[in-house]
């Protein structure tokens, strides 16, 4: 058992499951959105705004936004624990890794709040 407190859910199984579920959510959301764009080649602003004002679209977009944040956190955390280690960077690795992880989490929080503001500002 390896102890870790900076991963998304403190459990490898939980992170693994979240990573996969969020991947499915993101795939469905973006494929659907791409399909919508293909089916509406002469899309105008009113139609686009109407789409994003609908409650179901807000739910889907918020879900995709949250999924993106969780997915990115797990992914970036994994990258940081693979490459920003003492084997690769020496003694300062912990400081660099922790700074990187904190920066990622803060950035994701900013994107989440900003995203909600955009979605509900329509």
């Amino acid at each position: 058992m390896v102890t870790n407190v900076t991963s998304f859910g403190r459990s490898g199984l939980y992170d693994w499951l979240v990573q996969r579920i969020t991947a499915v959510i993101l795939a469905v959301y973006f494929v659907t959105l791409f399909g919508y764009l293909l089916l509406n080649p002469d899309l105008d602003y009113q139609q686009w705004q109407k789409l994003f004002s609908a409650t179901w679209m807000r739910i889907a977009s918020l879900m995709a936004l949250m999924a993106l944040c969780a997915h990115a956190w797990i992914g970036m955390w994994t990258i940081s624990t693979d490459y920003l280690t003492s084997d690769m960077l020496g003694g300062k690795a912990t400081v660099i890794r922790f700074f990187f992880q904190t920066a990622c989490v803060v950035l994701m929080f900013i994107y989440l709040v900003w995203g909600i503001q955009i979605l509900w500002g329509i």
């Binding site: 058992m1 390896v2 102890t3 870790n4 991963s7 403190r10 459990s11 490898g12 199984l13 992170d15 693994w16 624990t81």
Partner: peptide, 12 residues
């Protein structure tokens, strides 16, 4: 199983 569920042992 309890010894394997952390983020590294198996899930790496």
């Amino acid at each position: 199983l309890a010894n394997l569920e952390d983020p590294f042992s198996v899930f790496r």
